[in-house]
Design a protein around this nucleic acid. Structure first.
Lengths: 241, 241
DNA sequence: ATAGGGATCTTGTCTAGACATCCACATTCG
DNA sequence: CGAATGTGGATGTCTAGACAAGATCCCTAT
């Protein structure tokens, strides 16, 4: 119940109550919470006060709201997956080694003129064409990372045919007899963009780890530029020296 | 002005107005904005509507509020600093090479029994003693990273004396004739903890990049475990392979 | 059977007003 | 001169009530 004599604001008290109800299992993951009106009458506070409490809990990632449907308990953060990054590593094997099930989906692809930073990273001329692949990778069926992969069209002839029946990037490279190596990776922490929140199915306020990589072939030809976006609450990336 | 016929909520319109005023230079960095009451009467909307707009802009990092003082325009995000991480690199030289001015401050230190994850990482027994150094590193005078550095007391005799007149970690290692190498680094994106928000002087909702590192001496003795917390809007970390 | 139209429940936005709390500054009292 | 006090202005919290808009379900008319 709300302590009306406490110096703690009602909405903070209510937040604490909801948190405890979740911890105690009275409210379970994915389950609908009482409506704002129900909270309001149950705890004898104004609906706006309830909204303030729920709003804060949503921003904290504890709850989420669906307009017209109700408010729900968010999924608890998943187990951290340690992803070992090395010059030569493949997502599928990497995840399998940690005893989990990898997955890969091509969400979209197109051929475009290379954006500036891509052309720069791969040493392309300004008007060169690149393929852009939007790839989603899953771990145990859950979205793990979303990446935009840029491949220079000029260096990979007939790529369109290979992309058609996409299974994984490795398969495509194998078809060309290539086994690319990482040249450089850049790590950043930020919030996800719109595309990334949609692809990873995460709230916009969840921090993500962005990793920008450049890969080359065994002949030192730059062959891939990619920006990967990892769920901050899901992934940690390790590097051995 | 607020368009009363628009389907866009007033508070969203007001957010856009404030953003544009900042972009146009009518409101400058650090400057106080009109008060909630002034906004309210200037745009003929309720103070709560103003509060909603300002609240959103604060969460977005555009403004910040000081109770009893007013609302202010936040500093624009600083230039990204690319920090090159390699097995053997020193903060000071690293930053200097990029044409910026490095700084280092020891905020606190103490001797404690090694926490579990530290003992594990460094291969210590459960009751071994470690020094914990809270180090803040600056770039151009601004907080760049905050790290907790754990050094095994048993492997660095008389460390307390060296810590007393701290200038930088490198200096301490030099005094022992050591030049440690990175063994492993783990990257994560998350929100800062309380200690980190305070040390870096950042809001709690700014994503940070956490890097956990293990270092060894040239004789393959594990000598340092550290957790560094980089400002997400300030730092990007690059790794060459 | 199915498409359409409410009824109803949900969250979203907005207004009006009140009092609390904190801060900076000026004034007053010792 | 210095400390305490007061005052005005700022944000913080809370209430009461209203209407809008999205989602779901059921019932009805075709």
């Amino acid at each position: 119940m709300i302590d009306r004599k406490s110096s703690i604001p009602y909405y903070c008290q209510l937040m604490e109550i909801v948190r405890q109800q979740i911890a105690a299992g009275m409210l379970k993951e994915g389950q609908r919470t009482p409506s704002e009106f129900e909270f309001s009458s149950a705890y004898r506070v104004n609906r706006h006060t309830v909204r303030q409490a729920i709003g804060e809990l949503c921003r904290a990632g504890v709850l989420y709201k669906l307009r017209g449907r109700g408010t729900f308990v968010a999924k608890p953060p998943v187990d951290l997956v340690e992803y070992r990054l090395s010059p030569k590593n493949r997502f599928t094997e990497n995840i399998r080694q940690s005893g989990r099930t990898p997955g890969s989906r091509l969400l979209a692809w197109q051929e475009v003129t290379a954006p500036v930073q891509v052309a720069e990273a791969l040493g392309l001329t300004a008007d060169e064409r690149v393929y852009v692949l939007d790839v989603l990778r899953l771990v145990n069926g859950q979205p793990f990372l979303f990446s935009k992969v840029y491949l220079p069209a000029g260096r990979l002839p007939e790529l369109a045919d290979r992309v058609a029946d996409f299974r994984s990037l490795s398969v495509i490279y194998d078809a060309y007899g290539l086994s690319p190596q990482r040249v450089k990776s850049v790590f950043r922490a930020s919030f996800p963009g719109q595309e990334e929140t949609a692809a990873l199915d995460i709230p916009a306020n969840l921090p993500v780890l962005k990793v920008e990589s450049v890969l080359k072939t065994q002949d030192d030809v730059l062959i891939e530029y990619s920006v990967a976006c990892y769920r901050g609450d899901f992934a940690k990336i390790s590097v051995d020296w």
